[in-house]
């Protein structure tokens, strides 16, 4: 009897815990690591740059979708912050030790991963890449966005929106990792090459932290009274700029804000005019393609060396187009 009661109490507690977890997740993906799709004998281990940003959640979603279609299992790991290069390498090492059929890797640092690629090679595990590659020759295929091109597209739209002349600034999310560098360089190079009357007066970095990016943007606006536009290179940076515009009480359109990636806040900001538009990648596509590439290699096929998953400009006018709506995530 006593044990019966205990079990009942435990069950009740578990039920409460589950319902709490359920409501707090809002029906969202949760944090389970494996896709639980089928009993698939084929195991693909994905080691990402992170998992906390919605971008990575969308990559994970795409990976799990494709895994389910193909009947394989995927695991998805990533460090807590995109600065934890060492932590990511340990995850890659752990993935190699588990001896999956293939590994998918998104490198935080292109050099530090080389010894582990050698280890994967001697263990006979094929490696495919997504988002950002490793300098090793062993990586067999990469699914990613052409970040330089995406940055240039942002520059084209910024130039058009401000009428081809004036001062602009950039709030970056990283001066180290490749996406941060390339989205910035793509923008800067395009401005220098095509729009001689536009001057980039300041570039600062807020680590993608919304609060820090807002304070940076406010200082920029303060320091450059003639500033016509700010480009934020990821979701946190762009929303920081939008918050700054809101806090300073600028009229919508007084400062042109161009963002990157999607997320509810950016979609809202574009709808209410605080942000002119943004570049979106195709994170779900990245997740799908990396799993597909791994699957192809396991089955003896050769996927393309570089799979460009594409990027798009979106604004108020085309947000609801089917092609765009499919790659936006909230």
């Amino acid at each position: 009897m006593k044990t019966g009661k205990k079990v009942a109490a435990l069950a009740a507690a578990a039920a409460v815990a589950l319902s709490l977890a359920g409501c707090s997740n809002g029906g969202g993906g949760g944090t389970a690591e494996s896709s639980g799709s089928g009993e698939g004998d084929i195991q693909i281990a994905l080691v990402s740059k992170g998992f906390q940003h919605q971008f990575w959640q969308a990559v994970k979603q795409g990976a799990e979708q494709r895994a389910e279609e193909l009947g394989v299992s995927v695991t998805f790991d990533g460090p807590a912050a995109e600065t934890e290069i060492d932590g990511q390498l340990q995850m890659l090492q752990a993935a190699i030790d588990k001896k999956p059929d293939a590994i998918g890797f998104a490198a935080l640092d292109p050099e530090a991963c080389i010894p582990l690629y050698d280890a994967a090679e001697s263990a006979g595990i094929p490696v495919v890449e997504f988002d950002a590659g490793c300098s090793s020759e062993y990586g067999q295929s990469i699914a990613k966005t052409d970040s330089l091109g995406a940055g240039a597209l942002a520059a084209d739209h910024m130039a058009e929106l401000i009428g081809g002349e004036g001062e602009v600034a950039i709030v970056g999310h990283s001066q180290i990792n490749s996406t941060g560098v390339e989205r910035r360089d793509g923008f800067v190079d395009q401005m220098e090459a095509e729009y001689p009357d536009i001057e980039i007066v300041d570039i600062q970095y807020g680590d993608g932290d919304h609060l820090k990016s807002a304070d940076i943007a406010k200082a920029m606006i303060q320091a450059h009274p003639n500033l016509k536009g700010i480009y934020g290179t990821n979701e946190g940076s762009a929303i920081g700029v939008v918050n700054a515009v809101g806090e300073l009480g600028l009229e919508s359109g007084e400062l042109t804000v161009v963002g990157f990636d999607s997320g509810q806040a950016q979609i809202d900001a574009i709808e209410n005019g605080l942000m002119a538009g943004a570049i979106t990648q195709n994170p779900i596509g990245i997740g799908e393609e990396v799993v597909q590439a791994a699957y192809d290699i396991i089955n003896g096929e050769t996927p393309e060396e570089v799979i460009d998953t594409g990027y798009f400009w979106y604004d108020k006018d085309n947000m609801d187009d089917e092609e765009i709506a499919a790659v936006l995530y909230k």
Binding site: S24, N25, G26, G28, G30, T31, Q54, Q264, D268
Partner: peptide, 17 residues
């Protein structure tokens, strides 16, 4: 706290709009 914040939010921002 870091872990719980992620688990409880489902690794998504919560908007107060």
């Amino acid at each position: 706290a870091q872990g719980l914040a992620l688990v409880i939010s489902g690794v998504r921002p919560i908007y107060f709009s």
